[in-house]
């Protein structure tokens, strides 16, 4: 702000400079009295940025106390489990000996297939719900009402016990078989979980479709695109950005809800854990083991979801968000650069 001369040789000259600077005049004068080496002082005010503030930060005593309390509680819980009557050796053994490998595969399989049914049927239901055809809209509404309104476990048992009321699956000349042969635990679980999921996905898809600006549909129609093509090419890809995050949530739910299929004897993680636990008298141990498996599955899925979201955010932002690797690299370099005063890096 003040244009001081480059090398003021004399005190008087510096005085003139500070006087010219007007509102800085007083500051300049006090400095003059305080310092003996005029030259360095002048260049400091002219060229160098102000010294970084070194203040004593506010002490957050509450935070320290809170943290200590939480840690103490965690330690107590941990200690209780360590000292509890848990055979940790069995836990370790069953975690690694492959007992749960195929059950985990079954869990993955049923949840992925059921989710696929849920997504496809759910999208269809959403489109029906939004259609101007009152019959389609009402059917969709009724479907959602029924499948959201009854417990999954009941739906599982309903499907599985269908043979009690229908002895045969009879599709006339095309197909005929005994219901008992058709409605295996896998099929019953797939139908129950998938159809139930569709009801939830329908609402998620509907929100996604409705989030797309109507101008998009108009632009597509104006170009001569049909209604269905507009939906597939223009609206749904944009709706994805809104649909995917809650769908990821739904999938994680599905991974865990699939454990209810133990009730109809489907050999997924929880069913096997329960069986192994009761025969080996290691019920608690096996529940811990499957918990680790479930956590592992959901963790892997979280990473996948991140990349999926990144894919569908194409065009929504000026640049794509960084991948986790890119972000870590960025943070590492941020450690090396000093924090800027007034900048955003800390």
């Amino acid at each position: 702000m003040n244009e001081a001369p480059d090398t003021p040789g004399e005190p008087q000259e510096a005085d003139r400079a500070s006087a010219a600077a007007g509102r800085d005049a007083q500051v300049g004068e006090t400095r003059l009295t305080k310092t003996d080496t005029l030259r360095t002082e002048e260049t400091a005010t002219a060229d160098l940025p102000p010294a970084a503030i070194k203040a004593i930060p506010v002490r957050h005593w509450g935070r320290w106390i809170g943290a200590a309390l939480v840690l103490a509680a965690l330690a107590a819980i941990g200690l209780a489990f360590v000292n509890g009557d848990i055979a940790w050796a069995v836990v370790g053994e069953r975690l690694t000996d492959g007992t749960f490998f195929w059950p985990a595969w079954e869990t993955l399989k049923i949840s992925v297939y059921a989710m696929l049914i849920g997504v496809v049927l759910g999208t269809l239901l959403a489109v029906m719900r939004l259609s101007s055809n009152p019959v389609l809209s009402a059917v969709s509404y009724a479907y959602i009402w029924f499948f959201r309104g009854t417990p999954v476990i009941v739906q599982l048992l309903l499907w599985f016990n269908l043979s009690a009321v229908f002895t045969y699956v009879d599709l006339g000349p095309i197909y005929r078989n005994e219901m008992n042969d058709v409605m295996t635990p896998f099929v019953a679980a797939l139908l129950a979980l998938g159809l139930n999921e569709a009801a939830y996905m329908a609402e998620i898809s509907r929100a996604g479709i409705q989030s797309v600006d109507h101008g998009q549909t108009e632009a597509a129609h104006a170009l001569g695109m049909s209604g269905s093509k507009t939906m597939r090419r223009i609206v749904l890809p944009q709706a994805m950005r809104v649909i995917i995050p809650p769908t990821g949530n739904e999938y994680i739910n599905m991974l865990k809800t699939s454990s209810l299929a133990f009730a109809i004897g489907y050999g997924e993680l929880f069913y096997v854990a329960k069986n192994v636990g009761t025969t080996d008298y290691s019920v608690m141990e096996m529940y811990l083991v499957v918990s680790v498996w479930y956590l592992g599955l959901t963790t892997i899925f979280n990473v996948g979801q991140y990349y999926l979201e990144r894919h569908y955010s194409k065009g929504a932002n000026r640049s794509l968000p960084p991948t986790p690797l890119q972000r870590i690299r960025g943070q590492l370099t941020a450690f090396r650069t000093p924090s800027k005063v007034g900048g955003t890096t800390v």
Binding site: G215, Q216, E218, A219, A222, I234, G315
Partner: peptide, 14 residues
């Protein structure tokens, strides 16, 4: 019939 809108209405995902 081509149409050009006030708010462009380009397809943002393309």
């Amino acid at each position: 019939i081509g149409m050009v809108f006030q708010r462009f209405n380009l397809f943002p995902h393309m």
